[in-house]
């Protein structure tokens, strides 16, 4: 008993620096944000009396609704695309590839350049005079440059899916890697074709990995600001762009704080519903 206590104490001591760091850099700003959301601002004067005005204003504004729904829709599309493309890659590395380390290293290559550079690279590829259009023109497949490639939702989804791919591949790879190969042989032995075996053993045993991948991608992409700003055009703007405006040009920090908190709550709600639904589906497969 005494020993157990000292073990626990040791654990707290070891995690104390990280706890302090996180506490200071996450909890403190969050508290400030919450405080701001209940204050109000008229031009440059900040009124610190508590009010629900910002929430009323934000919830009644159709633009906020529209941008929030679009953000969730784009993040959902990014998540779906990324996970659907990442699963086969993770499956290949975990089940088929011989040199797993090399493959995993190759997957991290996009991270060797900065996020911003990658977004700009997509801009160069998809732009009006970009790589894609020049190539298609050069091959004579089109007569004039395609304009639907850049500055819309499609460009945002494409860019984000590329940027987040490794984050989807890794958790799915780990969950595939953990599957005991004799389970797959047992399924075959009991009469399953490879497809049945995948649906009844491999997929249910990787549900946790898929859920983790979805959350890792969905949560940050809802609030992504750089990609929609650079490749989204007016059709691809998301909630984070509106929030940025409140803290910048509009100079309405209380409304910006309120929008941030509302966005966080929406994301949290969607994520919780998703986790519960995902687990339920995983459990129903027999």
């Amino acid at each position: 008993m005494f020993k157990l206590r000292s073990e626990a104490a040791k654990g707290y001591t070891l995690s104390a620096p990280a706890t302090a760091y996180v506490g200071f850099l996450v909890a403190a700003p969050l508290i400030i944000l919450i405080a701001y959301s209940f204050w109000s601002q008229t031009y440059v004067t900040l009124d610190k009396s508590l009010t629900l005005k910002n929430y009323r204003e934000a919830l009644a504004d159709p633009l906020v609704h529209h941008l929030m729904l679009r953000s969730i829709w784009i993040a959902g599309a990014v998540t779906l695309t990324t996970v659907a493309l990442a699963y086969p890659i993770a499956y290949f590395i975990a089940m088929k590839a011989r040199k797993k380390t090399i493959w995993l290293l190759l997957i991290t290559i996009p991270f060797w350049s900065s996020y911003l550079l990658r977004v700009f690279a997509w801009k160069l590829i998809l732009g009006f005079n970009g790589v894609m259009n020049s190539a298609l023109l050069g091959m004579g497949l089109i007569d004039e440059p395609l304009s639907f490639l850049l500055y819309n939702e499609f460009a945002v989804v494409l860019t984000l899916a590329h940027a987040w791919a490794p984050f989807a591949i890794l958790p799915i790879y780990v969950s595939l890697q953990k599957i005991d190969p004799s389970l797959l042989e047992a399924a075959t032995d009991l009469g399953n074709t490879p497809v049945q075996r995948f649906l009844r053993v491999t997929l249910p045993l990787t549900v946790q990995g898929i859920i983790a991948a979805c959350l890792i991608i969905f949560i940050p992409t809802v609030g992504d600001y750089v990609t929609p700003a650079l490749v989204g055009g007016s059709d691809g703007k998301m909630i984070a762009n509106l929030i940025q405006v409140q803290f910048g040009a509009a100079n309405n920090w209380p409304l910006g704080a309120t929008l941030s908190l509302l966005a966080m709550m929406s994301v949290g709600f969607v994520a919780i519903v998703f986790v519960i639904a995902g687990r339920g589906v995983g459990r129903r497969i027999r």
Partner: peptide, 8 residues
């Protein structure tokens, strides 16, 4: 040998 009981 490992029995390969489906854990799910």
């Amino acid at each position: 040998q490992s029995y390969a009981i489906f854990p799910h």
